[in-house]
Amino acid sequence: MITPQPRLRAMLSLSITAVFIGGLIASQWLLTDSVQRMQFGARLAPPSLEHWLGTDALGRELWARTLAGLALSFWVGCLAALLSTLIALSLAALATLSARLDALVSLLIDTLLSVPHLILLMLIAFALGGGTQAVIIAVAVTHWPSLARVLRAELWQLRQAPYVHISRALGKSRWFVLHGHLLPHLLPHCLVGALLLFPHAILHEAALTFLGFGLSPSQPAIGVLLAEAMRYLNGGYWWLGVFPGLGLLLMVLMFERLSSQLRRAL
């Protein structure tokens, strides 16, 4: 059997994800009031032709709220993953400047990796007063260590390359070597690292919100939908938790798949 090339697979994966995300973003312009519109005559209605994924306790359409929740999770995940990657890259670059800075960065990485993720997330989100910004910052400042460790190791290896020594001998500054020789090599690592961070970021955002430390209950976040669903699961209203959960799972799996395909292709 002929297997598709890694680049072709990555392109296919990228196209599917782009269509999904494009649809998700477009749906937010089309569904402006469907997300919050209450239908008191159709409270907790099960999935049907009229209410595709059912309705919640206030008669709001679950498909519209799930789409809105996924879109919100996407933006939070994007910003948190981007910020996290920037922190990881900056600290890895800083570590190459001197042995003392390297020891400091390594200590910081080890310290953060030794603290349980969720506890630190809750503490930071709580300290920042909750809300979208607090969640993004909390997720970003707790997710960079693993990527920073990879980037730091990669930079140390690259620094031993003869062309780096030759560049220094030709009179080039440390800064030139860093941005001219070293950082361009790290871009694929950063891209894949950010994509791998993204599913973690949205899962932790949902977990934080579910636990009450994240986004405001007035926002149609996946974590809010799941927390609300918990109150009604005993009553047999399964659709309240299943569809937002499946939507989140689908998005996480899609980005996991994309990042692993890109890692093979790059």
Binding site: A161, P162, Y163, I166, S167, A169, L170, G171, G180, H181, P184, H185
Partner: peptide, 21 residues
């Protein structure tokens, strides 16, 4: 210690002496 070095070393493997990007 810094700046262009008046003594330049030309290594055996040119493939490793250049940035592949």
């Amino acid at each position: 210690d810094s700046g262009i070095q008046p003594v330049q070393w030309l290594p055996q493997s040119p493939e490793l002496s250049v940035n592949p990007r």
